[in-house]
Structure formats: C-alpha cells, structure tokens
C-alpha cells in the first residue's frame, strides 16, 4: 500500500504544484474554482484515455508517438501560460487595486481563464496517465482492492496537502507584489515545461541534444529526490540537462519576459507612466 501510495504521491505532487500556482494566479477571480475543477476533471478523463491508448500512441509515427505527444501537450501548456502571464502583466496592477478597494469583487473581463483551464488539464493528464498505468499494473499483478484504494488515498491526500501548503504560502505574499510574483512563477513554470518538451524532442531524435549533459548536479540534488522533483516542476530544475533543454528554457523565459514588458508595461519601463490604461476605472 505504501509503495503504491508513494508513486501516486510523486505524480500527484507534480500536478498539485502546478494547480496551486494557477490557483494563486487566479486569486480573486469569480468562479475560478469552477474553472480549476473543470480542468482537473478534463485532465482525469484525458489521463484515462491516454493510458488506455498508451500502446497506440507509443507505436504511432514509427515509434516516437509518445515523445511527440508529450512534447506537444507540454508546448501547448507553455503557450497557454505565456498568453496568460502576458495578459496579466498588463492587467494585474488594476486587479490588485480593485481587490483592495472592492474586496475581492473583481471583474474578470476577457481574462483568458480557458488558457489556465487547459494548463491544469494538461498537468493532471500527464501525471494522471502514469498513475492509471501504474495502478492497472498493480491490479493486474494481483494487488488487492484495499491496497490499491489505500495507496491512491495516501498519495492523493499527501500530494494535495503539499499543494495547499504552497498555495497558502503564496497567499502570504503582500498584495502589492502578489500578481507580479505569481506571474514570475508562471514564467519559470513555462520555461521548465519548455525544457521538458525539448527533452522529449531530443529523445525522439527530432532535435539535436547540443550536449547530452551540460552539467551534472545529481550528487548535489538528484532528479528523483523530493526537493529535486518539486523544483523540477516549479522552476524546471534538471540535474543533467541537455544543451537544447537550456536553450528552450532560456528562449521561453526571455520571450515571456519581453512579452510582459512590451505589452504589460511591467515596472522599470519608463514609458509606463505615459501609457494610458484603458481599463483603469
């Protein structure tokens, strides 16, 4: 039961961390609970479908279907996060001001919440499909229903607990900095996901590695450790990254940062004062 619980926990943890950041980033948005729940539900259904078609996906595109599938959904999540982060950087300040004055009653306007729904769904789908495959294996090799149910229970409860810890920790950030903090977290999250996508494209031999491992910090902090895994999800930590992964990471981070500056008028930009804010009401 504990072994099952541990694996379920590791997978749930990754999804829970991403969902927590999304929840923090959508603080104060009406009905955001519904959006996030839809995302989780869609992710669970997707996970079951992906697990069910695992063999077909694997065999597709002469054996590299699994890699292409993973890279595609990861890059889709990157685009969705980038879109939202850039949108938020241009509207976040008003949101923070409105939240202070009107007490959380914020007009969400045309905020791209559907983008974040997709991010949540993808996170749950990716980790969930591994859980489904693993549990299917456990069941097929004769583990009792009690052991499996117990394992799922332990894993989900512990994983979700860590997610809540992160969420409430983030809520401690002062309102003045809150949305720029969550925005930077989203930027790092997207860069990490892009690096993972590059990893799958290298694995598929679609992209060159540009150096199989540029550095090796696994003695310091291994990918398999709890902290390593957490940082892997949050900021894309990799103990042995390939050069192409670093390139994807840097390009994504810079592209989103530039996008936030150009369209958002984030801090430091001197032209910010002169720019009229259409939404400031």
């Amino acid at each position: 039961m504990l072994g099952t619980g541990l694996l379920v926990f590791r997978e749930v943890l990754e999804a829970a961390l991403i969902v927590s950041i999304v929840c923090a980033a959508t603080r104060g948005v009406p009905h955001r609970g519904r959006w996030v729940s839809f995302g989780i539900a869609a992710g669970v259904i997707g996970a079951i479908l992906v697990a069910f078609f695992a063999d077909a996906i694997s065999q597709a595109v002469s054996g590299i279907g699994q890699e292409l599938f993973n890279a595609t959904v990861l890059l889709a999540a990157v685009v969705m996060i980038a879109w939202h982060a850039i949108w938020m950087s241009s509207h976040g300040r008003e949101l923070a001001t409105q939240m202070k004055s009107v007490g959380g009653d914020v007009q969400s306007g045309k905020r791209p919440l559907s983008a974040l729904l997709i991010v949540v769904a993808i996170a749950v789908l990716r980790e969930g499909s591994e859980i489904v495959l693993f549990l299917y294996g456990q069941a097929a090799s004769g583990a009792g229903p009690l052991a499996i149910a117990g394992g799922i229970g332990i894993g989900i409860v512990c994983g979700v607990l860590v997610g809540f810890l992160l969420y409430f920790g983030l809520l401690g950030i002062p309102m003045r900095y809150f949305f720029s903090a969550t925005n930077w977290l989203m930027l790092l999250l997207a860069a990490g996901l892009a690096s993972q996508a590059a990893g799958f494209l290298i694995q598929a031999d679609v992209l060159p590695a540009f150096g199989n491992r540029v550095w090796d910090s696994s003695a310091l902090l291994s990918n398999g450790s709890l902290v390593g895994k957490t940082l892997h999800t949050l900021i894309g930590y990799d103990a042995q990254p390939a050069g192409m992964q670093l390139l994807f990471y840097a390009v994504t981070a810079v592209a989103i940062a530039v996008g936030m500056k150009v369209w958002g008028g984030v801090k430091t930009s001197p032209s910010r004062v002169a720019r009229p804010h259409a939404h400031a009401s």
Binding site: G137, A140, G199, Q203, N212, S218, A239, Q240
Partner: peptide
C-alpha cells in the same frame, strides 16, 4: 503483462512500455 516506464535521469530518458509491448 503489466506496464512499465523505462526511465533514466543519467540518460535523460522517460518512456512508457505497455505490457507485452
């Protein structure tokens, strides 16, 4: 008959292999 995931951080690889696959 059960699925497995071939994984290696040294090699930077991660791939599911279904039962009998």
């Amino acid at each position: 008959a059960t699925p497995e995931e071939f994984e290696s951080s040294d090699l930077n690889r991660e791939k599911v292999v279904v039962g009998k696959g």
